[in-house]
Simulated scan of single mutants.
Amino acid sequence: MKLHHYTTIENLALILNSKKIRFSRLTTVDDTEESENFGEYNIAPFIFVSCWTTNNVESIPLWKMYTGNMRGVRISFDGKPFHMRKLEINSSLPITIEGEVESPLTIEQIFNPECFVLPEFITNADFGGEVEYTDDLAGIYQDAVKITRNDDGSVNMSISGASSIAKHKSKVWAFQEEYRFNLMAFPAPKEGYTKDTFNNFHNLYVNAVYFGSSPRNNYIDVDLCPEKLNNMTIT
């Protein structure tokens, strides 16, 4: 499977210089309907996406929409382009990981000063998938987030995983044949990543969603695989 990303010359320069791909907040994508169909709790500001296409034939609409009026580039990779590597634990963090775990983010990138990235990609190694096009976007997302408060004061929250919650669009966008990578992130704890905050992480991000306190950062940069970057095709 080949993946293609249409972008501007300026963004290509940034990609080559940083060796990273930028994930943007779901609320900034071109299909505004995506972030407006959630129910009582809007999870869209907590989701960051990187959008690609699986269509190997050059698309005039995509050239027009994403390359700066057809004056940009299409970058192409054989398969998923991210740098999957063994997750090494920083000794300053009060956590442990059993066995060898591969991740597209380092431990410092997961637990960064601006946000905590939910490491769903550890149990969902694909960490991306084809977008499904539907006539009932609101119906799919209406109950994406459920929060219940217990008698003892504790709070439970269930979220349809980031790997699937932002993988649906209206059928009018089907021409994009989109393949999307998703990350879910929450504000970093004000006290830093201490033992107490790790013990209280669940309540921290439940409250963030409940009160609509999304991360301050508008994007998350993810490392590209050096080998795949060297073999990237630029059209």
Rank of each mutant, 00 (worst) to 15 (best):
R85M: 13
R85G: 10
K86M: 04
K86H: 06
K86Q: 10
L87V: 12
L87A: 08
E88F: 06
E88N: 11
I89L: 06
N90G: 08
S91D: 15
L93Q: 01
L93W: 00
L93N: 01
P94A: 06
I95A: 10
I95M: 14
T96C: 07
T96D: 12
I97P: 03
E98A: 09
G99C: 13
G99L: 14
E100D: 15
S103H: 08
S103C: 15
P104F: 12
L105C: 11
L105E: 06
L105Y: 15
I107N: 00
E108D: 15
E108H: 05
Q109M: 12
Q109T: 09
Q109F: 07
I110R: 00
I110T: 06
F111I: 00
N112L: 03
P113E: 07
P113M: 07
E114T: 15
E114D: 15
F116Y: 15
V117K: 07
V117P: 07
V117E: 10
P119R: 13
P119S: 12
E120H: 14
F121W: 15
F121D: 06
F121K: 05
F121S: 14
I122C: 10
I122A: 10
I122R: 04
I122E: 07
I122Q: 07
T123K: 13
T123Y: 13
T123S: 15
N124E: 12
N124G: 05
A125N: 13
A125C: 03
D126Y: 04
F127M: 14
F127Q: 12
G129L: 08
E130T: 13
E130N: 12
V131N: 04
V131H: 01
V131R: 02
V131W: 01
E132W: 04
E132L: 08
E132C: 06
Y133R: 03
Y133K: 02
T134Q: 03
T134Y: 02
D135N: 11
D136C: 06
D136M: 09
L137S: 00
L137M: 00
G139H: 04
I140E: 01
I140A: 01
I140K: 05
I140Y: 06
Y141K: 15
Q142K: 14
D143M: 04
D143R: 10
D143T: 09
A144L: 04
A144Y: 02
A144F: 08
A144D: 06
V145M: 06
V145A: 02
V145Q: 02
K146T: 11
K146L: 07
K146H: 04
K146I: 11
I147K: 04
I147W: 05
T148D: 05
T148H: 03
D152M: 05
D152F: 08
D152A: 05
G153H: 02
G153V: 00
G153S: 02
S154Y: 07
S154V: 09
S154G: 09
V155N: 03
V155I: 14
